[in-house]
């Protein structure tokens, strides 16, 4: 009985706070993406730039770990029973990837573009039965500056 009550409270808390955190995070992501819209991130190895114009290059990287909330975890477990798209986790990895790329951009505001952007996703708690559910996204690339910062 208590088990059920605790479960419902956790579920409601998870849904409420998780939803709140997600909305806020998305707001911040869209705002910052607009801010850095002019800094191109490319998955190309070369942007065909004029080699003479390059002032310096810099290796840039950033990471973010985002936790699932209780509601998402339970919803995903239910999904695991039936199979299909795990909707609850789609937004989680989407947020994490965009956040990581944004952090890369934020670490080199004066660059003209970032080459060869790679995004690596890992679950740091894989195979750890009752562990903390979270997803880590690590993004890295080569920032090219055409002028001093």
């Amino acid at each position: 009985m208590y088990q059920l009550a605790v479960f419902c409270v956790l579920l409601a808390l998870g849904y409420g706070f998780g939803r709140f955190a997600e909305t806020r995070h998305y707001q911040s992501i869209t705002r910052r993406e607009k801010l850095f819209a002019e800094l191109p991130t490319l998955s190309l190895r070369s942007a065909g730039e004029d080699e003479e114009a390059v002032f310096k290059t810099q290796f840039v990287s950033a990471n973010v770990v985002i936790s699932v909330d209780y509601f998402k975890r339970v919803a995903a477990a239910l999904r695991g029973f039936f199979g299909g798209n795990v909707q609850a986790y789609e937004s989680l990895v989407d947020r994490a990837r965009r956040e990581a790329v944004l952090r890369v951009k934020e670490s080199c505001p004066g660059a003209s573009h970032i080459l060869n952007v790679r995004i690596e996703t890992s679950s740091i708690h894989k195979g750890r039965g009752n562990g903390v559910g979270s997803v880590e996204v690590f993004a890295y690339g080569t920032a090219v500056y055409n002028a001093p910062d």
Binding site: G14, F17, V65, V132, G133, E136
Partner: peptide, 16 residues
């Protein structure tokens, strides 16, 4: 944090 969701800053820093 696993109940409420959100970024795990401790882990972000650790991995960084």
């Amino acid at each position: 944090k696993n109940i409420f969701g959100g970024e795990l800053r401790g882990y972000t820093e650790l991995l960084g």
